[in-house]
Design a protein around this nucleic acid. Sequence first.
RNA 1: GGGCAAUUAGCUCAGUUGGUUAGAGCGUUGCAUUGACAUUGCAGAGGUCACUGGUUCAAAUCCAGUAUUGCCCACCA
Length: 888
Amino acid sequence: MLPKAYNPQDTEDDIYKMWEENGVFKADSNTDKEPFTISMPPPNATGQLHLGHAVMLALEDIFIRYARMQGKEALWVPGTDHAAIATENVVISKIQKEEGIKRPREELGREEVLRRIQEFVSGSQSTIRSQIRKMGSSCDWSREAYTMDPSLSRCVNEVFNKMYGDELIYRGHRIVNWDPNLQTNVSDDEVEYETVKDPFYWFQYGPFQIGTVRPETKFGDKYVVMHPDDERYKEYKHGDTFECEWINGKVVATVIKDEAVDPEFGSGVMTITPWHDHTDFEIAERHGLEKQQIIDFDGKLLDCAYEFAGMHIKDAREKVIQKLDKKGLIIKVDESYEHAIAVNSRGKGKIEPQIREQWFIDVNRKAIPWNSETLSLKEVMQKVIREKNITIVPERFEKTYFHWIDNLRDWCISRQIWWGHRIPVWYKGDEKYVGVQPPDGDGWEQDSDTLDTWFSSAIWTWSTLIDKDKAQDMSLSLQDLLDQSPDFQKFHPTSVMETGYDILFFWVARMILMTTYATGQIPFETVYLHGMIRTRDGKKMSKSHPETCIDPLEIIPKYGADALRMSMIVGQSPGNDQKLFEEKIAGYRNFINKLWNASRFVLMQCEDAGVDPHNPVDSFGDLSLADRALLSALQDLIDDCAKGMNKYRLSETGEKLYSFTWDYFCDWYLEISKGQANHAVLIHTIRTILKLLHPYCPFVTEELWSQFKPLDASMLISDVWPVSDDSLRDQDSFNALQVVVDCISSVRKLRSEQSIEPGKTVQVQIFTKKFSKIISSEASSIQRLAKCEISIVGSTKELEKKNSVTAISKDIEICIPLEGLIDLDKEREKLEKEQKQLEGFLKGVMAKLNNKKFVDNAPAEVLEKEKAKKETAEGKLKKISERLSAMA
RNA sequence: GGGCAAUUAGCUCAGUUGGUUAGAGCGUUGCAUUGACAUUGCAGAGGUCACUGGUUCAAAUCCAGUAUUGCCCACCA
């Protein structure tokens, strides 16, 4: 016998082990079955699973389990990401903290640092692996991948090489977002802005007044820029020069007219620092101006600052101001100026733009053959979405996506860190070699930079499917590798890319770009974007607020993975954030337990009746009204689930399953069936519910399945998804049961209104013509559940006199009118109103159906629906007019 | 500055091409409960669907505007 309450801790690990040992997660590339593939967004190999991962794992596992039960060849590829900057950052500061080494890179050297990082990553990976298992994720561990695996690294180099060959990758001196703390540059997308308050200084610069928050960068300024249409500065011509007193003596300045200057801001004149500012850089490029480096890569001032040289910019500001003030060049200071400063999203170091030689991907060069055209990467990215080759759920993110592409600049892919894929370019003197492998001969030195971590992530859907042995054969080209990898051939393109909307740009857009370019295949059919999980106050969950922060590793032992999964799925709609708190999880724990106990009850019933719950259900025998209604509702549930799952409406489907199981099956059917159970119906229904619920809560359903599975069946995870059976559909019985339900609840209500003692049986007269048959056949159930004795009175005459629901005597006799007790005027009014509405409705539907454009364009399904609407409305209308004329 | 969204019960949220009386969970109130389950059951209270107009036989749903909140992108020295 099962224990009274479900304890997930007793079962979950064993069940996962059973699945894994039986190889049910493992997909076969050599099969005729339709493939269904998901590439798991690889967690960073830096730490622990958090709720963001948990929601991702839950969603994807539901998709995968559903597909698997539908008989598809379901493959879910797990893996981890080396997370270049994030990981290096974590390990470096760990070394600094734990070993007191101030500059680990300098002191330990490249090899040792990489070894330390690798060590850290290995530990982290095994933690993550076990955490993914805890969630019940049915991913194919035999195909586990890591962005730094040899075969994946090979793909990285192949793609780099191909792009270089197509002149889509170039090296150039550009202004980049330099982080002096981490000694690397970061991409535009990794830059965040923080609002700070800084004094805003006004200086006299020759005849002009200029404003700045950063006087410490102004040493080299020798251009003044203004808008060409600015009337105030008409007298100054582009190219005019003048001499003026500045920080370190006199300088010669040149007037530049450029439209980038906003005449409304400040005095409409500014000086520029092209080496350290994006806008200034662009202005300087346009006019061919000199660029001078003022700040070095550590954030210290260079020689051009004379007496300030070597000083950190943080300290220089005050000193520079003092000097300018002495010279009388400061006009005024605005102390409460607010502006945004750029920081690195990794580590929050302040960004100091610098000009450096970097590797870029050219997003505008037309180099990709596409049908009959040649497109740029940007255009490819736009095209696949515009032409609906990929569906984004929810759709509105398409707009955000296009907006991002419109603003997209060339992608800087080189990073000055050590952890990651080293750029596959080698130098010897002035010679340069680009290739997948190092060049032959001595004296070649590889580029010291590594690639942006998103470069390898961008090919994740397919680099993980490349045959590992084939990848060692260097004689094969990239195309050969693709052609000769069975997994790639079978499982790519993938079916769904499920991830958080926050990495739509970082990752999803780049996968579309890189994969479509490199393989000619669009990486996925659907992008499903989930929202962030927030605390009850709507704040981001972060480790700094442990009191409101929910840690899946604490929740799972307490409530079970199933409950956690359901609490994250139900109530979450794609693309929207959700608030999660413990009470909600407890609610689903209760649901799991309810399912458990319902099963326990059914098992008891079977035992009492000597029925083996493993029996096959071939026929149901005699069906009661309740049985027929239940089976009918079950068919609708099966259809709703399939529909909901196919449309990725997981929240709605989960809710339906919840309410069917609890409200209908447990609270009604099981109550009614007490004493007169149809075991075949009970077993069939439980089995169906377990199947439908399996994707949502795999552990408890698998555990219960072992109690109910037919003798020849195996594990639930690999069982077949239910299909509805129209012969079991019985709308009349379903409606009739509603009458019985109404009847019981009316009696209960009256009992409570009349304050009748709970134990006491009451007599109830039910006046009804239409439902007398149903009620008499279900009399025993009603009497038992409502604790009453009923008598059915066929005539309504007697009741009409009373004209209301009445307790004739306080505790003896109660009348329940179900029909026949009608206020004629009210009824007529109601009917007329309904008639009017229906007529209007019909008019609308007819207009649609007569509209040729609609009929021609609408999908068959929609058309059917409209026709059905029309028919039901017509039927209703007919009935109403019949009733109305009968009343008259 | 540009864009995207949200506003529904005390709280958290569903509500999909406009269609009966706007739903759920939690909380709350009353009652019940000794054989599936107190991780329970039954019943109830609680809503001007942010506001103002418009379209329609019919609007939480579509349109316009207003207010508040959140997010994304860009960024001005």
